[in-house]
């Protein structure tokens, strides 16, 4: 096994040996369960039925597990997904500096750059796993609750209202994964970047979460609707476009490129700081 792969393997082992990493996945399931309960309340159900009816579709066919899954994903990905990725990304390096294990690592002939690359790639692996978990768990919950059927999606703020037969719906659902991963990856870049500054990991978490939440709150205020293309939230919600019909390929590639750049900028900015600072706990 190459040294690089070996180091990433141990980084993952460290990450997944901590109970709080698993707690994140467990809390996600819990939140999805709770949301599912809220969405099954008569009022929520009626809202969804009304929305489907407005598109002159039959609620019996379109009020399916896939439809419910997308609704779940809409609420959990931008809130809990971002939260858990930020918690990991700000702790993976900052936590080691704070707990002084970073000093143990650096007693060895490993470069700072290698440490950063290994840790950031581990964050990306976590983001990919979380994206996969989000997509699969929402499908599973939706299917368990409503069973298979046609898919109906509605993201009015992005002018996406579409419906698909079950197979196409399922494929579109799975196609969310790459953009969801890139979105969470860019959030990881942000958190990781701040954790490279000379500040405690908790501070880096608060700063990163603050940016994500502030951006999201402003994005939701109608007054700023015309400025939405400039908000990061628009990019993080780029996966909504996977449900547009027909598929806006150029827009999807542009968003994917932007999210990749955002992630790289977070990492490179953090790296620039970290390589220049004196690391003392």
């Amino acid at each position: 096994m190459s040294p690089f792969v070996l180091q990433i393997r141990w980084e993952l082992k460290k990450l997944f040996s901590r109970k709080r990493t698993h707690l994140g996945f467990f809390l996600l399931l819990l939140a999805e369960g709770a949301l599912l309960w809220v969405l099954s309340l008569p009022q929520s159900d009626a809202d969804l039925v009304r929305l489907i009816g407005k598109s002159r579709l039959s609620p019996e066919s379109y009020l399916s597990g896939f439809t419910l899954g997308v609704e779940l994903m809409k609420w959990t990905s931008s809130t809990l997904g971002s939260l858990f990725v930020i918690l990991v990304a700000t702790d993976i390096l900052g936590g080691e500096v704070e707990e002084r294990t970073y000093r143990m690592i650096r007693c060895r002939p490993i470069t700072r750059n290698r440490v950063l690359v290994v840790k950031f790639l581990t964050c990306l692996v976590y983001a990919a796993m979380l994206a996969g978990f989000l997509v699969l768990s929402t499908i599973a919950f939706g299917l368990l609750f409503r069973g298979p059927g046609s898919l109906f999606v509605s993201f009015p703020s992005q002018s996406v209202v579409a419906w698909f037969p079950p197979t196409t719906g399922f494929l579109r659902y799975l196609a969310v994964l790459p953009l969801m991963f890139l979105g969470l990856g860019s959030v990881a870049g942000l958190g990781f970047g701040f954790s490279c500054f000379p500040m405690k990991p908790a501070t880096a978490t608060v700063v990163s979460l603050g940016i994500v939440l502030l951006d999201s709150v402003l994005w939701n205020i109608p007054y700023f609707a015309s400025l939405r293309p400039w908000f990061l939230t628009t990019r993080w919600l780029a996966w909504h476009q996977v449900f547009a019909d027909p598929l806006p390929w150029s827009e999807l590639f542009r968003e994917a490129g932007f999210l990749t750049l955002l992630s790289a900028a977070g990492f490179l900015g953090g790296r620039w700081i970290f390589l220049r600072r004196e690391v003392t706990p």
């Binding site: 040294p3 070996l6 141990w10 082992k13 690592i105 060895r108």
Partner: peptide, 15 residues
């Protein structure tokens, strides 16, 4: 981690 895994994790940084 246990002692053994700590040693392995740290030794991996000597590549």
């Amino acid at each position: 981690l246990n002692g053994w895994d700590n040693l392995r994790a740290l030794a991996a940084c000597s590549a």
